[in-house]
Nucleic acid binder design. Sequence first.
DNA 1: TCGAATATGTTTACAGTGAAAACATGATCG
DNA 2: CGATCATGTTTTCACTGTAAACATATTCGA
Lengths: 201, 201
Amino acid sequence: MIENDNSVNIENEKGRYHHGDLRAALISEGLRLLAIGDVEQLSLRQIARNVGVSPTAVYRHFPDKQALLTALAMEGGAQLARRQKKAQTAAGGGRAGFDETGRVYVRFALENPALFRLMTAKSRVGTETCPGEERGGLGLLRRNIAALAAPGTSEEAQRVGFVRSWAMVHGLAMLMLDGQVPADESLIDRVVDTAFVAGPA
Amino acid sequence: MIENDNSVNIENEKGRYHHGDLRAALISEGLRLLAIGDVEQLSLRQIARNVGVSPTAVYRHFPDKQALLTALAMEGGAQLARRQKKAQTAAGGGRAGFDETGRVYVRFALENPALFRLMTAKSRVGTETCPGEERGGLGLLRRNIAALAAPGTSEEAQRVGFVRSWAMVHGLAMLMLDGQVPADESLIDRVVDTAFVAGPA
DNA sequence: TCGAATATGTTTACAGTGAAAACATGATCG
DNA sequence: CGATCATGTTTTCACTGTAAACATATTCGA
């Protein structure tokens, strides 16, 4: 997902002018810094410094800082979607599998606070323009809603269920991230329960 | 809520050295800027400039920028709680009143995006240390949960309901703010529905 | 009432940021 | 081999938060 093979990718000979795959290195270092600090102390210059390149070199690969952040966010989105799919099949699919995707959403947020915040941080021009959406976590959610809805459930009711489910886990993740609700695993299990989002007709 | 009568509060004679009530003026201007821009472009210097004071004057009233932001957030929290209480009684209390507090939560977020983001932005050392919490929106929510729960509902189940309700509206607010779900009034009405958070035992 | 202490401002300075402009280097391909 | 172009660097700018030293007003005790 990171490798873009946009360059020769020579092995690590130090002191050379061209980096080899600077774009991938920037993303990788950005993710590393996000894992150990929060997003507002993540600076373009710091990333460049750690990669061993001048600050403005970044602009050869990203039009501005926001574009780099967006790239980091997309990487995070892909990771989350992978985990959710794996968890769903591991739980045997169905209703239990669906619940598990929601819990993975919250756990992912707790394990990657800064990255998760970045992933859901407005800036993105619009989710629908995000490539691979229907194959990502949101597509998974939509298909799960459709599969688990009572037969004959209207398109509109499914849409409401979709938003409700997403809002539930997203809100829980945010409240726990912000320390307004204890980040308690058993609380996640109890709060994320399909019975409440599917609910009555 | 803003006036702190910590000074003489002389009427607007221009050109005087002391401001009169700089603290209140900073908060007021901060809220104004939050209403017309987003939070990451809200600078301490800008606020000071607009109030007509030097950048470092701010530090006589707040230890750092974060403290000023916290003050803004608390002002927002008070506003939200007031609106919720009014809406609840306007709706005649009960289940309908409870639902309405949730919808007000989301609408407040949509009407004051930057302020709402600030209000729920981690930094705060902890909600329980926030003075007046039990009298604010969270206390209101807790009491509503207790009042509307089926008789004999355990303390723990109430707590889960509390978190679930909060997470629901908070998540919906966030997703709409981030443009990941259309900020549609009728969608709010359908998604925020007590039946789903109170649900089965 | 007057002078000292204190609260509240200002000026200056510094390190850090994102970004634009001009320049340097090296890879690629005719 | 030499021109072209992608990819770096250096320099520069405006802006940020904030520390330190200084200035002015207000307040309060003698």
